[in-house]
Design a protein around this nucleic acid. Sequence first.
DNA 1: CTCCCTTGTGTTAGCGCTGTCCATTAGCGC
DNA 2: GCGCTAATGGACAGCGCTAACACAAGGGAG
Lengths: 349, 349
Amino acid sequence: MVDHPSSDAEAAHAEVELSTVRLQEVAEAAGVSTITVSRCINNPARVSEKTREHVLKIANRMGYIPNRLASSLASARSMVIGVVVPTIANPIHGMVLQGAADILEPAGYQVLLGNSHFSKQSEFELVRTFLGHRVDGILLTGRDHLEECLDLLARSRTPMVEMFDYNPEPSDMAVGSSNFDAGASLGQYLIARGRRQFAYVGHTGLDDSRMIARLQGLIKVCEAAGLAPPRHYEISSDPGTGTGGEVVGTILRDVPEIDAVVFAGHQVAVGAIRYSVDVGIAVPQRLAIAGFGDSPIAKWITPSLTTVRFPVRENGIEAGKLMLWRLQGKQCKQRSIRLGFEILGRDSA
Amino acid sequence: MVDHPSSDAEAAHAEVELSTVRLQEVAEAAGVSTITVSRCINNPARVSEKTREHVLKIANRMGYIPNRLASSLASARSMVIGVVVPTIANPIHGMVLQGAADILEPAGYQVLLGNSHFSKQSEFELVRTFLGHRVDGILLTGRDHLEECLDLLARSRTPMVEMFDYNPEPSDMAVGSSNFDAGASLGQYLIARGRRQFAYVGHTGLDDSRMIARLQGLIKVCEAAGLAPPRHYEISSDPGTGTGGEVVGTILRDVPEIDAVVFAGHQVAVGAIRYSVDVGIAVPQRLAIAGFGDSPIAKWITPSLTTVRFPVRENGIEAGKLMLWRLQGKQCKQRSIRLGFEILGRDSA
DNA sequence: CTCCCTTGTGTTAGCGCTGTCCATTAGCGC
DNA sequence: GCGCTAATGGACAGCGCTAACACAAGGGAG
């Protein structure tokens, strides 16, 4: 190990142009080979403590920032996880993402984000892009994907977790609550409280598979209770144009006997409560209103909204953990994690 | 250009193991050099149409996905933008991010996300990490950063946009509304409606500089109107432990003459309205309540919250545009973009 | 004193792609 | 025929890092 009396001056100069500080410069300044510097950073155990300290001190002083592109290329590990959400503007997905990031970042992984805008085609293209970046893993939202997308993922052998929907037979790994069960439980809750004739309102801003699963759960309990199946409506819920409470009017005009409306989401359900109160429909006396998903609005509206709470943040956390397990080569205990949910019985139903 | 009768068979085989399809394989299958394939993808104009079509068809058939790590390393452009937000679980930042992504993704850039959890130190570390990934640009939230962080950014010559706060003298580029002006305008609005004695409640979940700028605007108009400066309170607003409406009680006990409370955020203000209604403080007759930032809850609570709406999504969009301009080498018209805001006068003040 | 194993460090050969420079060809006017 | 330009494609040398192997030194067992 050679002593470099001039190394301080060199370091000061190097700091001016960060881009020029390479592993090799650090190695020269420290009087060791490049691989030793590399090991000091990535595999400290394989270097003697004395060398490590010396090298790291110099690397630090020179303001060395390892080039992860080069490192990833050489090692075939990018330390990046690609995450596809429908839209990050929806706080639900923000919370999932936060949960995942809170697990992945401390482990040294960075999150590459993509918004699919509820398009499976866009999702596929994002997956392609992510694979181009050679991400070490991919987190997808929902269980409904393009065949080609799953194919590509499988062929590329990139670990993948489907979030937000329970899937006992995932194409790789999955974590989420059962939307079917949630629909069934909410239905049971309503039936137990005397409701007999349901409408179900699906809407944009939620992917089809989850919407349908919730409906199917509802259908099942209706059947089991000997009730008519729920009337199925479909609306758009662009935040700008209001949340489509008007559908309540339509429903009651169509089928006056309906005494409970279940909305696929909570925002829309809140809009429906507003509307009903405004036009004088008594909630819950005349009409029960319920939804899926929770938020402060659901709690604070009058009457407050009966809804199903999903453990959103936990979903991201568990997805991150599954991914980490896989990446660290540990034998996965299970490929699919089932999360619960909770019926929040409030005033609207 | 040689004809390869067996190229189809080769392609089928290659598809099995995606990881082995390299530029060179495509080049061989197409009977051209690697650089020609590269140009077909990145610089189509430099290749004759005939060659391009032929090459792209083969690349497609082989399921070739360019390795962006290698490409970035060789070209010194990663097509990745790093974005640091305090927490993506907050829908405000989700919407900003969405705006930015909606501009950047169509231009071929991907977003690498980092959560600083309101810590400037974490922000700095994320910036270091991002620079390690050789991002082409960085978007930060707020105008308050570690000195070292700005230094590093400047030395690395990485384009950077500060979002969410107007800054006429940004260290690189900036976009946002003036929080000082927003505070002043809200103050004027309240004074015009007869309020004379203010309290201002800052809270966690918002960085200091914005909170203080809003307060300073308020102080200015109080002075100008010959009123006493606002009383300054500070609370924590962890979503779990409620939104601290109790501070209203404290304030009125401290200084009963206070007739208007301005909250640094809207969630907390909504909590304060709830509390006031519950304990029988007449809003707005006895006490005006106002906040900054808008959301459905602010509108739907009774009484509805008077607040300041910032153009959140536009913030992200403009930040993305600024970044793109810079990256495309166009002369920036301006380094700092000032966005407006809107006083939403509702029932609470 | 050899053998072998462990520990620490170095050498070599890429990872997959693109910038730069150069070679070839064709088309044109004189 | 010549030189000129423009269009097209190729050879080569890296980008900055690490996996794999090589090698030296030291220590314990036989």
